[in-house]
Computed example of a mutant assay.
Amino acid sequence: MSIFSTYSQPENQITSTLLAVLKQLRMPVMQFIIQTLIEEPETDLIVFENQPQGNTSRPDARISSSFSYWFEVKRVTNAVNEKQIQAHIQLLNNTATSLQRLIVLTPDATEPAALVKYHHHGVVWSNFNTLYDVLVGLLDPQESPLRLTSTERYLLVEFTEFLEEAGLIHHSEPMVVIVPARVAWKDYHDYHAYICQPNRTFREASHMGFYLNKTIKNQIPKILNHLSNVELTPSPNSSASLNTLINAMQNQNDSRLGERHDIYFLSSPNDQDTLTLASDVVHHGKPFQNQRYFSLRSFRKPDLTDTSQL
């Protein structure tokens, strides 16, 4: 069990662990986690102003903040209590801060229907799978928008393990992991593989998709095998598939030869295990900075053209 676990009551244990981690993070990291979790990345929690105009004077500058994030955490599905939410909303209404959010964090796969009508009261829902993805994205040096300190990295690794150990991360059906693909899309066509930094963490997924230029590309290959932290150097002791990959990289004069990486071997574009869509899937929202997960079933929709349909 995680080193953060101190409370005997499971929900209190989860909440106290979350707060213990957030408290130790620098403000930009904490803000990124919460605002990405609730999909409000543009909100400024701290405002910096030059020469703000007051009623009677104009000071040279002001740094100000007025927000409250409240949490209601559930460790099992279908556990949201509407009366409890209503009572929390009354608390929000009686608190004098300009930005109020009640974050309801649950393991449900979709938002509980009882919460929808309270959105305009500042109630936002997210689940532990989304929180896990945000943390994993921060831990990825290639994809993270922020540089973590060694202490922050340690805390987030421990917290992701805690979420797994607590049984809060669920895989109810075959999933597709979507990866940012500035390099990966070309790698897939050159090598039929995904190459990333060693020991990268993914949730369980059966297939992989590629996000590039505001679209998910129309080929969704099956993940055939995964090798962790391997050196990209020819060796008689390596598997045939790894040596085939290395030979192909040598033919491309790939600069990653000799380095250590994780390798995901993928079905080829023409393989029957690769799901080929009628067209690329357009994404109109904020660009995917980290991996995202969608059900494989959602990609089989015959009229799929936009990520809002996933």
Rank of each mutant, 00 (worst) to 15 (best):
Y69I: 05
W70G: 06
Q86A: 14
N81T: 07
N81M: 04
R58K: 14
V21G: 05
T77R: 07
S98T: 12
A20L: 00
Q35E: 10
L91H: 15
A61E: 11
Q24D: 13
R75H: 09
V104Y: 04
I89F: 08
Q51V: 07
S64G: 02
I34V: 12
P28N: 07
P59F: 06
L18A: 03
R75V: 00
D60K: 14
Q51R: 14
R101Q: 03
P52W: 05
D44V: 00
T43D: 09
L99H: 10
S68G: 04
Q35D: 05
E82N: 02
L18G: 02
N94G: 15
W70Y: 08
F48G: 00
Q90N: 15
F71V: 01
V104A: 04
D44C: 01
K74S: 02
L19F: 15
R75M: 02
Q100A: 05
M30D: 02
N50K: 14
S57Q: 09
E42M: 00
N50E: 14
Q90W: 08
F67Y: 14
K74R: 05
L37E: 01
E39S: 12
Y69F: 15
I33L: 09
L105P: 06
L19D: 08
T77F: 00
G54K: 09
T36R: 13
L99P: 00
P28W: 09
S57K: 08
R101D: 01
D44A: 08
N93T: 09
S98N: 11
Q51I: 06
T97A: 06
V29I: 15
T77S: 08
E82T: 11
V73D: 01
E49K: 12
L99Y: 13
I34R: 01
R58P: 00
